[in-house]
Design a binder for these strands. Structure first.
Lengths: 139, 139
DNA sequence: TTGGGTGCAAACTATTTGCATTCGA
DNA sequence: TCGAATGCAAATAGTTTGCACCCAA
């Protein structure tokens, strides 16, 4: 998963995205490893590295990446959108205490959808989110 | 489900909520029927009825209701939180085109969760969201 | 009475947008 | 070159908060 500059560029091209400097910077941060980052976190990490990318560009770029299927948007926290660099099908565990996300492999949760959706619509995605909080005892 | 003033008051008391005028107004709107409303929509409907309730009170009250388990918060749209007056366990279908929510009975989706959550956490809820968009053909 | 509840307006925060400048092909 | 991408700052929009006034018990 850790990808070097060239692999990232190739990945962008593969998704029909012109690889500009700041897009490559952002993609490198995202694809360092499987992770869930908010736009603000991406901004901080990109600029901690070296290059400087503006806030607007980070937002626009993350939106573009999501639209092109490079990353997955995760809506679990009303306060912010997370971008998930793990493209394999999986579910999420959300720690409401600290606003942290964790992946859950599909093998751990079984969802059988019986197929009676309204006519004229196509499924864009199925999200399964398990919300947890620290239980009184441990931790 | 349509509840009159007295039933609403009783419901509030049952959840340990002091029934003030505006809380009753808001609850009456919510429990007219099973529905998914954003804070803004609640505000509009309450004030369309008669009484006037401020925006701050609507937000505070909906937060209180959610905390006390009177309504269920639904996080599917980064732009707004929905409040669901249907307390029975169920899942959601989200129309990304128009930002509309629909209930899906649990009988229609089967979720088997295999139990290996991190230690020290308790499940607060499991959300299943099916995101759909108008397919090119119909509609 | 009296502490919790409410209203208003101002504050906040995440995100979007307009427009002039810069860059990739 | 030239349109697409970027940066900046200002604009939006949902939600929260501070504080003085008011009402339910």
């Amino acid at each position: 998963m850790p990808e070097n500059r060239d692999q990232v560029i190739e990945r962008l091209r593969g998704h029909g995205i012109t690889p500009t400097q700041q897009r490559v910077e952002i993609a490198q941060v995202l694809f360092e490893r499987h992770q869930h980052l908010s736009a603000d976190q991406v901004l901080a990490r990109v600029n901690a590295r070296d290059a400087s990318v503006s806030k607007a560009t980070v937002y626009n770029t993350l939106g573009l990446f999501a639209e092109k299927g490079l990353v997955r948007e995760v809506i679990v926290d009303p306060a912010r959108v997370f971008y998930d660099s793990n493209l394999d099908p999986h579910h999420h565990l959300f720690h409401v205490d600290n606003g942290t996300l964790e992946d859950i492999p599909v093998s751990q949760v079984n969802v059988d959808r019986l197929p009676d959706l309204p006519a004229g619509v196509a499924v864009e995605g199925v999200d399964v989110i398990i919300r947890v909080r620290r239980s009184g005892a441990a931790q």
